[in-house]
Computed example of a mutant assay.
Amino acid sequence: MKDEKRIYVWDIFVRIFHWVLVSCIFLNYFITEEGEKPHEIIGYVAAAFVVLRFFWGFFGSYYARFSTWLAGPGTVFRYLRYFKKRRIYMSHNPVAGWMMIFLMLCVIGLGITGFMMGTDRFFGEEWVENLHNIIANVMMAGVAIHVIGALYESYHEKQNLVAGMVHGYKKDLTK
Rank of each mutant, 00 (worst) to 15 (best):
43 G>T: 01
43 G>V: 00
43 G>N: 02
44 Y>G: 04
44 Y>I: 08
48 A>I: 14
51 V>F: 15
52 L>P: 04
54 F>V: 15
55 F>Y: 15
55 F>G: 14
56 W>I: 02
58 F>E: 08
61 S>A: 12
64 A>L: 06
65 R>F: 14
68 T>E: 15
68 T>G: 10
69 W>M: 07
70 L>H: 02
70 L>Q: 03
71 A>Q: 12
73 P>H: 09
74 G>A: 11
76 V>L: 05
77 F>E: 05
78 R>C: 06
82 Y>T: 06
82 Y>I: 03
83 F>M: 09
84 K>I: 05
84 K>R: 13
85 K>W: 05
88 I>W: 06
94 P>F: 12
94 P>M: 11
95 V>D: 02
98 W>C: 03
100 M>N: 13
102 F>L: 09
103 L>V: 13
103 L>K: 10
105 L>T: 01
105 L>I: 04
106 C>R: 00
107 V>M: 04
108 I>L: 15
109 G>V: 07
109 G>M: 03
110 L>V: 06
111 G>E: 01
112 I>Q: 02
113 T>D: 05
114 G>N: 00
114 G>I: 00
115 F>H: 07
116 M>D: 03
119 T>N: 09
120 D>S: 11
120 D>G: 14
124 G>E: 03
125 E>C: 09
126 E>Y: 04
129 E>L: 11
129 E>T: 11
130 N>V: 14
131 L>K: 04
133 N>G: 08
133 N>R: 08
133 N>E: 13
134 I>C: 06
135 I>S: 00
136 A>C: 06
136 A>E: 01
137 N>C: 07
141 A>M: 12
143 V>A: 09
147 V>G: 06
147 V>D: 06
150 A>F: 07
152 Y>R: 10
152 Y>Q: 08
154 S>T: 03
155 Y>V: 14
156 H>Y: 08
157 E>N: 13
